[in-house]
Design a protein around this nucleic acid. Structure first.
Length: 229
DNA sequence: GCGACAG
DNA sequence: ATCTTGTCGC
């Protein structure tokens, strides 16, 4: 897919925080008018213990059958450290390269991390959606900020995530008796649509199939690249 | 100052 | 994220 550079990546953590405050103003909190979701993609990265290489991948699924229809991957040297709140500056360089190599445009892209459920309302899914120009959702396995009340045990049970008095996302039970996932809108997305799509892309496991396919892809690519079995 | 802290 | 052994449950 095409990709217009938004900014440079050679930044200090301090500069990255300032950039987040700038870029958040450009987020669109609404899905595109008449959005029809036929293809949903998942993005993920993988790395080895003491290695500078990161492997990123994107897998596009048919939203009706959950079957993969396209995939892409890339490897890039990591530069930015992991800093809570600045994850996108570590992951997006390699995901950008994978996005460039992707030949089928998804209607929505689901990231493995937060959207607006972030200290500055600009998590990985916000940054990625803005950079790629695609509606995006954050679906994380744990919380970065905020709290939520109890939720029912059945699939589809939800509880609002509150941070600084604002509803920034929802804890969503995707299967009976499993821990919830944490869903928040990224770019060109709202909360009800994000929750509905995460549930639609989830079948027999806790995480959406998009995330699971992307996770498997990047781990396979990493093992091949390092000559493992 | 102390604890929390996506991946 | 990755590293690891054991352990719980269908």
């Amino acid at each position: 897919m095409e990709l217009e550079p938004l900014h440079q990546w050679d930044l200090t953590p301090k500069q990255a925080v300032a950039l987040q405050r700038e870029l958040r103003e450009r987020l669109d909190p609404r899905p595109p008018a008449g959005l029809t979701v036929e293809r949903v993609a998942g993005a993920d990265i993988s790395m080895s213990r003491g290695d500078v290489w990161a492997y990123g991948g994107i897998v596009v699924l048919d939203a009706g059958t959950l079957a993969p229809v396209a995939r892409s991957s890339a490897a890039v040297r990591l530069t930015f450290p992991y800093v809570p709140g600045l994850l996108s500056f570590r992951e997006l360089p390699v995901l950008s390269e994978a996005w460039t190599r992707l030949e089928v445009r998804p209607d929505v892209l689901i990231f493995d991390g937060q959207g607006i459920a972030h200290p500055r309302r600009f998590g990985l899914a916000c940054h990625g959606g803005l950079l790629f120009g695609v509606p995006s959702i954050g679906c994380a396995k744990s919380l970065l900020v905020g709290k939520h009340g109890p939720l029912g045990e059945e699939r589809g049970s939800v509880a609002d995530i509150i941070h600084d008095g604002e509803v920034v996302g929802r804890a969503v039970r995707t299967r009976l008796g499993v821990l919830p996932v944490y869903v928040s809108p990224g770019h060109m997305m709202d909360l009800p649509t994000a929750v509905e799509l995460v549930l639609r892309m989830t079948s027999r496991y806790r995480e959406p199939e998009t995330t699971r396919h992307a996770h498997r892809l990047v781990n396979d690519v990493r093992r091949s690249a390092r000559g493992e079995s």
